[in-house]
Write a protein that binds this DNA or RNA. Structure first.
Length: 263
DNA sequence: ATAAATGTTAAGAA
DNA sequence: GTTCTTAACATTTA
């Protein structure tokens, strides 16, 4: 279930392994999560190395190891991370297991839309995004408006899903943001008034910050007033006045919105 | 059995 | 050349 905050939560699942050596690496080398990755090199380099630190950017994670080695992880649609006891046996979908003396770090991904990549060297991996994060000082209104301007013909929902401008935003967050900004998801970006763009940017920052604070911290539930709790079910209603939600495919994804709140 | 699922990306169209 | 749309990827669940 990985968007910005779920990714942050997943990243921390491996925190207990920081500072400890990797004594063995087990992986399902032919699985799609390793597409484009040299798994033999990954294994060869990581064994005997210490896990030093980790960072997340949007939906991407980077785990740094000794010897200038790093492991990039993206959870795709169904990826998850967890810790298991040392004697743990990998199941069918546990595609990567990093064994340490006191625990095993596990990456699981049944659908395999996610991926695990390896990078050796001091340089920044070319797959590591440089886009400003939503909570960062670089995410200014100028930057925001400029990004929207470059995608003026697309429906605003589709643009919110672009990781090059909105790192970490996914399907539920995009719907949540649009609902709070009172904008219908299929509005062309060029039709947004300045006031609506401001509302959109505010909602983007609010949803990201609150999700990170609540879900990213300990996987707690978001307040009952949020749209997320209604949008999954076909019978979902607006949290404000119980109007049945509309739904359609926009930007290639199932989208839910309130026809009363959003224009 | 068919459809849909919290994502990305290649390919082709505009 | 850039932007936009859509199909495809692999598996489980409703």
């Amino acid at each position: 279930m990985p968007e910005l905050a779920e990714v942050e939560y997943a990243r921390k699942r491996w925190d207990a392994g920081i500072g400890a050596n990797i004594i063995a690496v087990e992986l399902h080398a032919t699985k799609r999560v390793f597409r484009g990755t040299d798994t033999r090199e990954l294994k060869r380099q990581l064994i005997g190395r210490r896990l030093l630190s980790s960072v997340a950017r949007g939906k991407q994670m980077l785990f740094r190891f000794g010897g200038d080695n790093s492991l990039g992880i993206h959870l795709g649609m169904s990826g998850s991370m967890r810790m298991e006891p040392p004697g743990f046996r990998a199941a069918k979908h546990d595609h990567l297991v990093l064994r340490q003396a006191k625990q095993a770090l596990v990456l699981r991904d049944p659908r395999q839309f996610g991926r695990a990549r390896f990078h050796h060297g001091k340089s920044r991996p070319d797959w590591w995004s440089a886009a400003p994060e939503i909570g960062s000082p670089e995410f200014t209104s100028e930057y925001f408006d400029d990004f929207l301007a470059r995608h003026r013909r697309a429906p605003v929902k589709a643009v919110l899903l672009l990781q090059s401008g909105f790192p970490g935003i996914g399907n539920w967050m995009a719907d949540e943001i649009l609902w709070r900004a009172h904008v219908v998801p299929n509005r062309r970006v060029e039709k947004l008034k300045a006031q609506e763009r401001t509302a959109l940017r505010r909602a983007t920052r609010f949803v990201s910050r609150e999700a990170l604070r609540i879900v990213g911290h300990d996987d707690s539930n978001l307040p009952k007033t949020w749209l997320i709790h209604e949008r999954w079910s076909a019978k979902g209603v607006c949290p404000l006045h119980k109007t049945p939600l509309e739904r359609a495919t926009i930007g290639g994804r199932t989208t839910a919105w309130c026809p009363t709140c959003q224009r």
